[in-house]
Simulated assay, not measured.
Amino acid sequence: MLVDYHTHHERCGHAVGRLEEYVRAARERGLKEIGLSDHQPVLHIRPEDLLPEVAMPLEELPLYVQEALALKEKYRGEIEVKVGLEADWVAGYGEQVRALLAQYPFDYVIGSVHFLGDWDHTDSRQLAGWETRDVLTTYEEYFEQIRAAAASGLFDTIGHIDVIKRFGYKPERSWEHLLEETVVAVRDAGVCVEVNASGLRYPCAEQFPSKRMLEMMHSHRVPLTIGSDAHKPEHVGLGLDTVVALLREVGYREVYGFTGRERYAIGI
């Protein structure tokens, strides 16, 4: 395990542990780089209407960046600490996100689609949302937003690109065309795609993206990065050995890291 570019911590409300605990866990596991990438404050839902423990409050963001930058300096020479953010793509809020990101010296920004409107389809407390939705139509809506996120120019990498499958809801009709359209869109946008090991711990029981989607990405030469999506220090690096073995099977021989929002290759 060389790098882990997707981690969270206590500020987001649904993870545990201080930032430094994640850095120390990465160092102890022999990682060369650890990416700190907590959740962007939610911008499209008023705080009073937002379920608790979804993302860090807006007033915590500068404190998060300040602490992450301090850890980068503290552990220089021991492990590379990358300061990142997992940002939300929500249609109509791109410029607000752009203005927010411009205020901070991030090494990289993950773009993820957690919300379809006000519904957070990644939140286990909101599974009832599936009861009133057609699954294929929801998948179509989701992947349309992923393609828009990739094309926005806001993000360095697209996070857990097929996370819509997280809780095991899958269309009865074929949806492979959505994968192909999306892979072509991210290729054309020139963004990296994250291979996220956390899906191995959810009902879908496979990484994000699926092996089939990874095969498509390899054929289209889409660059990748990797992350555990750790929400506990002990989850740092979890599942990445499985992910790297799969990437090599598919044909990949490198993933990408980031500094100052510029990417560079890391051999696997």
Rank of each mutant, 00 (worst) to 15 (best):
D118L: 08
V90D: 03
E172N: 10
L127S: 13
T122S: 10
G30D: 11
P52M: 02
Y202F: 12
E60S: 13
F155W: 03
G30V: 10
Q207W: 00
L247Y: 09
S210Q: 10
D38K: 06
R76T: 11
S228I: 04
A151Q: 12
V186R: 07
E144I: 00
L154M: 02
E249R: 11
E180G: 04
V250H: 06
D241A: 14
E249I: 04
R263I: 03
A99I: 01
L247T: 14
P223S: 05
L214S: 09
C12N: 13
Y5P: 13
L36F: 05
P47W: 00
E141S: 09
V255D: 06
R133V: 06
K82F: 00
H44Y: 02
R248W: 03
L50W: 09
Q126W: 00
D156E: 13
P105S: 04
D38H: 05
T182P: 00
G159T: 10
L31I: 04
L19H: 03
D4P: 06
L214V: 13
Y64V: 07
L61R: 08
L31A: 01
Q103V: 01
A87R: 03
T137Y: 00
R248V: 14
L154E: 02
G84A: 02
Y108E: 07
I158G: 09
Q103R: 15
L2T: 14
L200M: 13
V42A: 05
G30T: 11
V3Q: 13
R18H: 12
L69S: 07
W119G: 00
E21C: 10
A15I: 11
L43R: 08
L2W: 12
Y169I: 00
Q66E: 14
Y104F: 15
R24F: 05
Y256G: 02
V83R: 06
K232D: 12
L224T: 07
V83A: 08
D88G: 01
G260M: 01
H231M: 05
G260R: 05
Y108Q: 07
V83I: 10
V195Q: 04
I158V: 15
R187K: 14
H220C: 09
A128L: 13
G111P: 15
V195A: 05
S219D: 15
A15K: 04
L154Y: 06
W175L: 00
L179K: 04
Q40P: 11
L71N: 11
P203N: 07
Y93D: 07
K82T: 12
K165P: 12
S219I: 01
G30S: 06
R125S: 06
P223K: 11
Q96S: 10
G30E: 12
A99T: 11
R46E: 15
